[in-house]
Each structure stands twice: as structure tokens, then as C-alpha cells.
């Protein structure tokens, strides 16, 4: 395994809410440990409401009430290996966009509709690199857009004049302008159609290849993960339940949930009957005991509802949290 760029250990991040004196806890990220390697494309997959976005928020150091980190650590190799959860807000601000960057989901709500793309870029650079003058700003912006293959004429337009795909690509250009080490993309292609989706994903791949940085893609669509990621982490109800090389996960999925996710995907040229996962996603305020998937699992055994399965490495970095597999069962 190559050099680790981000290490996450035993991370617990809960939403604490109080109404009428009753405290409610949402266990959005519960005891998650993993690492991100340099130069890889990592996918984080799972249903909506499984804690993917919360995990990314914590990794970026955006922790605002009602979200609280209850324990664990997040270390960036580029940030001198300090635990960012103990840093002050100003110190994290210095790292953001340069070490870690974020591509948000809705590009329309990111770009100011009243300002031209050029102005948005300039505002952004002035706020984060105040020591550079305006002409070199413009040069950096132009160079960056050209290297990504985007037309320079977009700079003089307003966001509403661009198509949805172009807006999303401008947003990507904006958040990668300081050549960050790690880029987090949260559902970068939801609400885009297939052709545009491909364009956006290929742009992300291009950026990753050009500057050899690390890309983390968060999304519920397994077919996108199959296309571009090197490794996948599958999240279910606040926990990572399976993690490994993309090819391994697709050829030999170990966890029953992963198997459902992969088998439910329709393909062209295949009209055989596909089913969804039975049941509904669990509530994170009151997650099931033991293995959180056991109420929906077709292969549950006695121990599943009693104890929580640990994430165990089965083979070459392929890890799974399932008693059926770890007890040496035929899975």
C-alpha cells in the first residue's frame, strides 16, 4: 500500500439535539477508521442518510453544532500529521482549499447569480491568497481553465447563461485552483444526465492525473464507482461495512448489503428481474443493535442481533464487517 495521506481513527461524530428537555442523538458517523492513500481515487458509497456527507464534513473540519465530534482523530500527512479535530478554526482555514478541497453538489447554489464567473474566481482568490496582484490572478485563472479544457469565454458570463454541466465543471475548476492534495466531491453528478455526468467525471479524472492528487468521490450510485474509483468504502448506518479494491468488491462482494447494491443495478442488454434491498434504511437516532444491517439481512444468524461485527481484513486490504464471513462461513 502506498503512502497514506489521510488517516482516520475511531471517528465518532453525532448530531446532538435537544427539544423540550429531551436529548436526541443521531449517530451519523460511529466509530469509523480508514485511510486514504496518495494518488488514489476512493469512493464512499451508501444510501442517503447513512452518514456519508457527515463524514466528509468532519474530514474537512466543518464542525458546527448540532454536529459534535465525540472522539477519534483525523490526520493529514500534509498538515504535519496533526489531528485536525484539535486545531483552531484559523489553522483549518489555512489548510482548506490548499490541502483539502471540496466540490459541492448543487452548482447553482454555489456560484453567485449576480456576479460573472470571472468575479467569482477573483473574489475566491483574493480571499484565500491576498498577497498576489490582479494580473497574475487572471493568468492563473486562465491557465487553470485551459489546462482543464474549459472555454475561456465562460469567464465573462453569468451562471444562468451556462448549462448545468458547464456550471458544475466551473465549480470544479474553482475548487481545484490551488492544486489541493485531497479533493472531496460530494455527489458531484447527481441531477446531471448521463452524457454530462460522463463529462464531469472525466474532468475529475483529468485533474487527478494531471496533478497526481487524491480524489474522494461520495455517491450512492455504484455504477459510477465502478467506472472511476480505485478503492471503495461502503457505508451503512454510520459505519463502514466493507472496504477494498474496486475490482475485488465487484467481483467478490462479501457483505450481503454490498451484494444487494451491486445486483440491483440494471444494465443494457439484461432484462432479468432485479430487486431492491428489502426493508427501509434504519433510523440513525435509534440504530438496530448488533450488526446494523441484520433486520434487512437474508442471512442473519443468532449473533448478528447481539454483537457488533468488527471490520476484519479478509485478503489484500479487502475488509468486511460481517459475522458470516469472519466466522469462516460460506457467506
Amino acid at each position: 500500500m502506498s503512502e497514506q495521506i489521510v488517516t482516520v481513527r475511531n471517528l465518532k461524530a453525532y448530531y446532538l439535539m435537544e427539544s423540550y428537555g429531551i436529548e436526541r442523538r443521531v449517530y451519523a458517523v460511529d466509530n469509523v477508521s480508514f485511510e486514504i492513500c496518495k494518488g488514489e481515487i476512493l469512493g464512499i458509497a451508501g444510501e442517503s442518510g447513512c452518514g456519508k456527507t457527515t463524514l466528509v464534513k468532519v474530514l474537512l473540519g466543518i464542525i458546527k453544532p448540532p454536529l459534535f465530534v465525540m472522539g477519534g482523530e483525523v490526520r493529514y500527512a500534509a498538515g504535519d500529521g496533526k489531528n485536525i479535530l484539535t486545531l483552531r478554526e484559523e489553522e483549518i482555514k489555512g489548510m482548506r482549499w490548499k490541502i483539502m478541497s471540496y466540490i459541492p453538489q448543487g452548482s447553482m447554489s454555489v456560484l453567485n447569480p449576480l456576479r460573472k464567473i470571472k468575479d467569482t474566481f477573483q473574489d475566491f482568490m483574493e480571499a484565500h491568497q491576498p498577497d498576489i496582484d490582479r494580473t497574475s490572478f487572471n493568468n492563473i485563472i486562465k491557465e487553470h481553465l485551459l489546462s482543464l479544457g474549459l472555454p475561456l469565454e465562460v469567464l465573462n458570463l453569468y451562471p444562468h447563461q451556462l448549462s448545468g454541466g458547464m456550471r458544475q465543471r466551473v465549480t470544479i475548476a474553482l475548487s481545484t485552483i490551488f492544486k489541493p492534495e485531497v479533493i472531496f466531491a460530494d455527489e458531484p453528478t447527481t441531477a446531471l444526465d448521463v452524457v454530462v455526468q460522463r463529462g464531469v467525471l472525466q474532468l475529475l479524472q483529468k485533474i487527478q492525473k494531471q496533478s497526481n492528487n487524491t480524489l474522494v468521490i461520495i455517491g450512492h450510485d455504484m455504477s459510477i464507482h465502478a467506472r472511476i474509483t480505485d478503492r471503495i468504502a461502503i457505508m451503512y448506518a454510520g459505519k463502514i461495512i466493507e472496504m477494498g479494491d474496486t475490482r475485488d468488491i465487484f467481483s467478490i462482494p462479501l457483505h450481503p448489503y454490498t451484494r444487494y447494491l451491486i445486483n440491483s443495478l440494471p444494465r443494457i442488454g439484461d432484462k432479468s428481474y432485479k430487486t431492491s434491498i428489502p426493508g427501509t434504511p434504519p433510523s440513525l437516532t435509534d440504530p438496530p443493535t448488533g450488526c446494523r444491517f441484520h433486520p434487512r439481512c437474508p442471512k442473519t444468524i443468532y449473533i448478528c442481533s447481539k454483537e457488533e461485527p468488527p471490520l476484519i481484513e479478509i485478503k489484500d486490504g479487502h475488509k468486511v464487517a460481517c459475522f458470516k464471513v469472519s466466522n469462516g462461513g460460506e457467506n
Binding site: G149, L162, S163, R198, I228, R267
Partner: peptide, 23 residues
């Protein structure tokens, strides 16, 4: 359109770049 559908198969990946309309 057909080529752009992400087939859930890690062995097949997109080779060539695609042209998108900007406006």
C-alpha cells in the same frame, strides 16, 4: 448516450474524452 452510461463493471472504463455543449 449509450457509451456514457456507467456500466457497473470495473473492467470497462471510458477511453476517449467527450464533447459537451457549453451553452
Amino acid at each position: 448516450l449509450k457509451q456514457s452510461i456507467p456500466d457497473p463493471d470495473p473492467e470497462s472504463r471510458w477511453e476517449e474524452d467527450i464533447q459537451l455543449s457549453a451553452f
